[in-house]
């Protein structure tokens, strides 16, 4: 059996539920569960526990009177004394700050300043900013993130300007934003691209701009959330790293396998979507890495390095 939350944590959840219970309202338990981050079954158990709570002298009118019927609850009395939302605790302010870090909201953004105004004592927003960082999305991402989140939420088409990694060119596209996906700290947009008539994955840090178009699109029946292709669906390049080369970046290549060879060098096998991607990654090692297979990637690495050298002349 899964271990439940400790007493204090569950009490926090019960106290968070109280301000949501308005006399005379019938509320979906799933909605309350979503509001406090638990399952509907846990919320139902919490509500049942709340019916046992109240204030002295604990006569029937002093108790929290709820009627739980199926997946809804009807509220008959406002919770005494705790009928308004509490200020954010330090832990909650820290959680919000960390999450918004990850979406590119700087500490001095209007949103974070507004949230700081409802935080309780114990730690200032500035102190939390100096001690906890949970993502540090690239600067300038917040407005993009907000636009795409709103478009995805309201099933509204968006026009994006996107830097294609393979060509290095900006392209303008009309997309149906389906989902925002975070992988290892990088945000991606999964969307249907009208220009190509297929789903596409876009890195937010390569998106120059996004605007909502005020036109809705039909929600898809399902959304594929695998933003990184399966390695077995891709052609494979073999890249040999010198014995003293840093392998830190190669270890982050999606699906890469590393094999140490007798001479101390490391053979990295990695699937690639575009030749230009693996060519640039290899050229960036500045001689520490050499593509051995396939020939078209070797040629691309050579061509890229030669072109960059030509720029220097």
């Amino acid at each position: 059996m899964a271990k439940g939350p400790d007493t204090a944590t569950r009490a926090r959840r019960l106290l968070a539920l109280l301000p949501l219970l308005k006399r005379g309202e019938t509320i979906a338990i799933a909605e309350l569960a979503a509001a406090v981050g638990c399952s509907p079954a846990e919320a139902a158990a919490d509500l049942a526990a709340l019916t046992m709570c109240g204030v002295p002298p604990f006569t029937p009118v002093d108790m929290i009177e709820l009627d739980i019927q199926g997946d809804h609850v009807t509220v008959y009395i406002d919770p005494p004394g705790l009928d308004r939302p509490l200020r954010l605790t330090v832990a909650e302010a820290r959680a919000l700050g960390a999450a918004l870090d990850a979406a590119g909201y700087a500490a001095d953004s209007a949103l974070r300043q507004a949230l700081a105004s409802v935080s309780g004592g114990g730690a200032s927003a500035a102190e939390l900013e100096r001690t906890v960082r949970a993502g540090a999305a690239p600067g300038g991402l917040a407005s993009l993130y907000a636009t795409l989140a709103m478009a995805a939420d309201e099933h509204e088409k968006a026009r994006i300007t996107y830097l294609t990694g393979s060509s290095g060119r900006l392209s303008e596209r009309v997309v149906h934003p389906w989902a925002l996906v975070n992988r290892s700290g990088t945000w991606y947009l999964v969307a249907f691209c009208e220009g190509v008539g297929e789903e596409r994955v876009f890195r937010l840090d390569r998106m120059r701009s996004a605007e909502r178009l005020g036109v809705t699109f039909p929600p898809p029946a399902s959304v594929p959330l695998a933003v990184i292709p399966r390695p077995d669906e891709l052609p494979v390049a073999e890249v040999v790293f010198a014995p003293d080369a840093s392998l830190a970046e190669a270890r982050t290549w999606p699906g890469a396998t590393l094999e140490t060879r007798p001479d101390g060098s490391t053979l990295v096998r990695v699937g690639y979507q575009t030749v230009s991607w693996i060519a640039r990654r290899t050229a960036a090692r500045l001689g520490e890495a050499e593509v051995t297979e396939p020939a078209e990637v070797r040629e691309a690495v050579h061509a890229l390095a030669a072109a960059l050298l030509a720029e220097r002349r």
């Binding site: 926090r12 301000p19 509001a35 981050g37 939302p85 509490l86 954010l88 820290r94 960390a98 999450a99």
Partner: peptide, 8 residues
């Protein structure tokens, strides 16, 4: 903590 914060 994030879920409880959003609830508040």
């Amino acid at each position: 903590d994030l879920a409880l914060a959003l609830g508040k």
